[in-house]
């Protein structure tokens, strides 16, 4: 347990998120009672899933470095499995895919061991070169380039990109006395998810011009710009409490996280359109699959990480 050396601002952040959850539950219960004729099942499922997801994340974060690393490795496993299940794979490549799964514990070991150099090249270089090598042993050339590309794309998004969240936890705590190790993770997770919600609400209220009609007809300029503005303000306000960034650097962090999350969301939408599916699985009631939930983090995590790393570490 790292309860004792948890900075007060991190504890306040946990409390703040719980307060938001209570409000969300209250809204969904009130809506149901005020308009019993309407079906709010999806909203209620969504809120309930949020409770469970946040409880799991917080529990993992509070149990310390080892448990958190295992937790994020497990998230990568679920995301990789989901991706490999929706994307076409060749039956002959089953053993190749097994290596992709094996890459998860190896990669997260570099995180745990705080071996930054290895963490940053293992998947982009070594796994990238290894996948086609293992495929050569299979000997099947039909669909070779397409498969190799899909497999590496899968590992980059679901393992490499997501693991940046876990690496935030092992950055030297002395640099961030305000928020401690978990402050950075709370900052990133909160802003990314907050941006999703803000975009949605702005889009509903003043969204008119479609921003990417061919990929995701629900996304509007109003939603995007409203989300960007709200997220930047929130990022500036929270920065000094949870991160080593000052308010101006936090404002820029918000300007990175919001569009990154937006693009991550659109990218997964494009993948789903390509495969002609609506959700990536049924894992999370009311939300869809784990990729439907993590899509914005896939882009936001590495970009926020490297911005922060360049400035402060």
């Amino acid at each position: 347990m790292i309860w004792n050396d948890l900075p007060t601002s991190a504890i306040s952040a946990l409390g703040g998120v719980f307060a938001l959850l209570v409000i969300a539950s209250a809204v969904s219960i009130t809506l149901k009672q005020m308009r019993p004729d309407k079906n709010y099942l999806e909203l209620r499922q969504r809120v309930r899933s949020w409770w469970l997801m946040i409880a799991l994340v917080f529990a993992a974060l509070l149990m310390g470095k080892g448990a958190s690393t295992v937790f994020f490795a497990f998230l990568s496993f679920l995301a990789l499995k989901e991706f490999l299940s929706i994307v076409p794979t060749r039956l002959t490549d089953r053993r190749v895919l097994l290596w992709l799964y094996l890459a998860i514990p190896i990669h997260y070991y570099w995180v745990y061991a705080e071996w930054y150099g290895m963490f940053i090249i293992f998947i982009p270089v070594y796994l990238f070169l290894f996948i086609p090598t293992r495929m050569l042993l299979v000997g099947e050339t039909d669909g070779f380039i397409r498969s190799a590309a899909s497999y590496h794309w899968a590992a980059m998004t679901t393992v490499f990109c997501l693991s940046h969240i876990a690496y935030l936890l092992v950055l030297p705590a002395s640099v961030n006395p305000a928020g401690g190790a978990i402050g950075l993770v709370l900052y990133l997770l909160f802003l990314t998810q907050f941006n999703d919600v803000a975009q949605y609400i702005w889009g509903k209220t003043l969204g008119k011009r479609k921003i990417a009609p061919l990929i995701s007809p629900n996304k509007t300029w109003g939603g995007f710009l409203g989300g960007l503005f709200t997220t930047m303000v929130a990022a500036a306000l929270l920065a000094e409490h949870l991160t080593p960034l000052n308010w101006l650097e936090g404002l820029i962090a918000g300007a990175i996280i919001a569009p990154a999350g937006f693009i991550g969301d659109l990218t997964m939408s494009a993948v789903k359109r390509d495969l002609k599916i609506k959700d990536t699985s049924q894992l999370i009631p009311g939300h869809g699959g784990i990729l439907d939930r993590l899509d914005s983090l896939i882009y936001a995590s590495p970009l926020f990480f490297h911005y922060l790393y360049y400035l402060k570490y």
């Binding site: 496993f77 499995k81 989901e82 490999l84 299940s85 929706i86 794979t89 039956l91 089953r94 053993r95 895919l97 097994l98 799964y101 699985s281």
Partner: peptide
């Protein structure tokens, strides 16, 4: 659907997939 990808006939190795 998908279980034949996870554990097909004649191959003892289980590879994870959503089914």
């Amino acid at each position: 659907h998908g279980l034949g990808r996870a554990l097909p006939k004649g191959d003892p190795i289980l590879v994870p997939f959503n089914c």
